[in-house]
Every structure is written in C-alpha cells, then in structure tokens.
Simulated assay, not measured.
Amino acid sequence: MTEQMTRPLGLRERKKLKAMRHIQRVALDLFDRDGYAHVTIERIAAEAEVSPSSIYRYFGTKEMIVLWDEYDPIMLQAFDDRLAAQDPISALREVLTEVVTAAMFDQDEQFIRRRMTYMMEEPSVRASMGRQADETAVQLRQTIAKHTGRDPDGLELRVVTVALISAFMEAIAYWHDSGYRDSLREIVDGALDVIERGLRVG
C-alpha cells in the first residue's frame, strides 16, 4: 500500500470524506429506487440531510456523485511517485493494482457494481465519464513529461496516455458487460498486457 493511501487525514479532510461517502450512498439508494432521471440534487440533499449547495460544492454535478472516487487523486500522486523509477505501463499497473485492491477493501464490491451500472448505462453519466477520462489523460501526460523531458503536447505522449486511459476504460466496461465474472484486477492487468506487447493479429 502506498504512503498516500495510508497517511492519516486531518479532521477537516475526514469530515469532508465522510460527508461525500454518505451523500454518494444516499444518492445511489435513490437512483436504484426511483430511477436516475427522476432524482434531483434537492432530493438527494433532503435525504442526506445536507444543503443542495453542499452537494454542488463537493461534486459539482449529479453525474459526478456517481463518478466521484476518493482514490482518483491518490492514484495520480502515486503514479507520479512511481515514474521516478519505472516506465509508465509498469507504474500504472502497480498503482491500479493497489488502488483496485484498496477500493475493494474499503467499499464492498456490490457498491462498486452499483456505481458501475450508472457509469455504463446512464448516457449523461457515461458522457461525463468520457470527459473525466480526457482530463485524466492530460494530467497523465503532463506527469510523464515531467519525468521524461518529452513534450506534453507532442504526438508520442498523446498516443501513450490515450492508450493507457482507453485500456482502463475498456477493462471496466468489459468487467460490467461480462457480468463481473472475472476479477477486476485481472482484467485491468490483462488490458495493460495488450498495450505493453502491442496488437498482434494472426
């Protein structure tokens, strides 16, 4: 487990994290019961006993309530740390393995699957996930550029980072589409194997 995943949080950070976890769970309960399209921010706020402005401050949009994952910033920082000594694929493989393991430990797998249903099947959430992936790709290539001296806007890093993000996105889509029958860790690892060796046909 990385230092970022185990370091103690301050009181304010703990309170914010607890509130965001609570709101996300309340929202998913409402989505499951009444349908995503029929649940407003105001209803989520009332059920979670917080103000609508708090939800907007924490998440920004209803879609981000589903997409928010407390491990995202941890993953980016850990990737940055690992790049000092590893190539991008090895660093990302190690970080994702740790993040997926931590997520499965802290959140029951059923909860992750519930979020995944809306990510894959709700058009507005899936569109937001695509935009989030684009933003993550930019962050990754800036991080890789910092460690390699390559141009963050050059073709090489654009292709590498889009390939890595796309591999992860397709891995979680496959996990959902295959009915979660295989381990997410194994699927992510297999997707990165494909990127690492390149596509061979025949």
Rank of each mutant, 00 (worst) to 15 (best):
G179L: 07
A173Y: 05
D72F: 14
E13L: 08
T97D: 15
S90Q: 13
L155V: 09
L9W: 12
T61K: 08
W175R: 03
G149F: 07
A127E: 15
Q139H: 13
H38Y: 13
R113W: 02
R115D: 02
E122P: 04
I55V: 08
V66E: 10
T117R: 15
E122G: 03
M1K: 10
S53D: 12
G190C: 10
D32I: 02
A127C: 03
V26E: 11
V188Q: 11
V138G: 08
S183M: 07
P8H: 02
F105T: 11
A102Y: 04
A167G: 04
E47D: 08
K62V: 04
H38C: 12
R57P: 00
M5G: 03
I165R: 07
M120Y: 05
M129R: 15
A84R: 15
R93E: 07
Q142V: 01
V95W: 02
Q86R: 12
L17C: 01
D193E: 14
R150E: 15
T40C: 01
Y174P: 00
R93S: 09
I89E: 02
F79W: 03
L92F: 09
R7P: 00
D134W: 11
I23M: 09
Y36S: 06
T97C: 10
M169F: 00
M1E: 11
E186T: 11
Q77L: 14
L9M: 15
V194F: 06
F79P: 01
L76W: 06
E94N: 09
E186K: 14
V50T: 11
L11T: 12
Y58M: 04
V95F: 04
G10H: 12
A171N: 05
F168G: 11
A37R: 15
D72L: 15
H176F: 14
E186R: 15
P152N: 06
T143C: 10
V138K: 15
D153M: 12
E98M: 14
E121C: 13
T143D: 02
A27E: 06
F79E: 00
E49M: 12
L164Y: 00
E196S: 12
D189K: 12
I112H: 06
R131M: 14
G60M: 09
A19C: 07
D189T: 10
A167P: 06
Y36M: 06
R158H: 10
Y71C: 09
D29S: 11
R7T: 03
M104Q: 15
M119P: 01
L28D: 04
F31N: 03
S51V: 00
L96Q: 14
R150S: 12
L67K: 08
I41F: 00
M169P: 00
I41N: 02
P52T: 01
G190P: 10
F59D: 06
D153G: 13
G198Q: 10
L9A: 13
V39F: 07
D34L: 09
V100P: 02
L17N: 10
R115T: 03
E49W: 03
G202Q: 09
A85D: 14
E70F: 09
Q107K: 13
H147N: 10
I112C: 04
D32L: 14
E13N: 08
D177Y: 02
